[in-house]
């Protein structure tokens, strides 16, 4: 504990992981050349970046397709999750009716329901199937976290609202939703990542339809043993995931830094 308590500057925070990454890449490059590893087993980093540069236009189109499905799934999951959580916070009956089915949706592997969804939306609309599957994956953390948050209202504050004759709407708007916000943001952080995973897994299972997302690029590259391009697509996927995570973390910090324990800076 004592050696960990020294403050770490933001610059160090960035510089150290970057330095580690560079060291690993250099080692990787050197080992691939030294051991003469075939490029269809493990391509050197330089080759991967070359492939990324060469296939840039088509990979970018795929990135956009995957990104679009991820974002749409995320926002639909956010809307439905919050709406259902608010609804179930209003009535216990609604809550106990909805929740078991939400859990069923959550525990059923998305891979298993993909063929069914694909048949329902029709093979001409694979992108819709992808959207539905990614939404299902992203939905549950939002619902369960928001539900928990809406229930975590301070009892005395609830009494206070009652004393001042707050309406149901006022209680929701000024008490329950702000209380639930940190929980919701935590759920959004998980869901953002899950929406991307859902979009990729769904594309693996359901195929790509008219446009080809990054998952399809990976499958296609594997089939053609074009491993450098596969790695290039993987890198884009990781970058996308990281960007989503950072955006969520930034949003969380922006909304909570004034008042919530999780985002407060401590001075020692």
């Amino acid at each position: 504990m004592s050696e960990d308590s020294a403050p770490i500057s933001p610059a160090t925070r960035v510089a150290v992981p970057v330095a580690l990454g560079i060291v690993v890449l250099v080692l990787w490059e050197a080992l691939v050349w030294y051991l003469a590893v075939p490029k269809f087993v493990l391509p050197a980093p330089s080759l991967i970046f070359k492939s990324l540069a060469a296939d840039y236009p088509s990979l970018l189109v795929s990135l956009w397709i995957t990104l679009r499905i991820t974002l749409m799934a995320f926002f639909i999951a956010l809307g439905c999750g919050v709406a259902l959580a608010v609804l179930s916070a209003q009535s216990r009956i609604v809550e106990i009716s909805i929740f078991p089915y939400a859990v069923i949706l959550q525990v059923t592997p998305v891979v298993a329901i993909a063929p069914l969804i694909l048949i329902w939306v029709g093979l001409d609309h694979v992108d819709r199937a992808l959207l539905i599957l990614a939404t299902i994956v992203a939905f549950f953390p939002i619902l369960s976290n928001t539900t928990l948050g809406l229930k975590s209202v301070d009892h005395n504050l609830r009494d206070l609202f009652q004393l001042y004759g707050a309406t149901r709407w006022q209680r929701l708007r000024y008490l329950q939703l702000p209380t639930a916000l940190p929980y919701l943001l935590g759920g959004m952080k998980i869901s953002g990542g899950l929406a991307l995973i859902g979009a990729v897994v769904a594309e693996f299972v359901a195929g790509s339809g008219t446009g080809a997302g990054l998952a399809w690029r990976i499958v296609e590259s594997a089939n053609r043993l074009n491993i450098p391009r596969m790695f290039a697509a993987l890198i884009l996927l990781s970058v996308l995931g990281i960007v989503i995570f950072l955006l969520m973390a930034g949003l969380q910090n922006l909304l909570l830094r004034r008042w919530h324990e999780s985002a407060m800076q401590r001075e020692r």
């Binding site: 005395n156 008490l175 702000p178 916000l181």
Partner: peptide, 11 residues
Amino acid sequence: FVFQEPTLMPW
């Protein structure tokens, strides 16, 4: 009404 705790909205 004043409660035993300040009971303020932290946000």
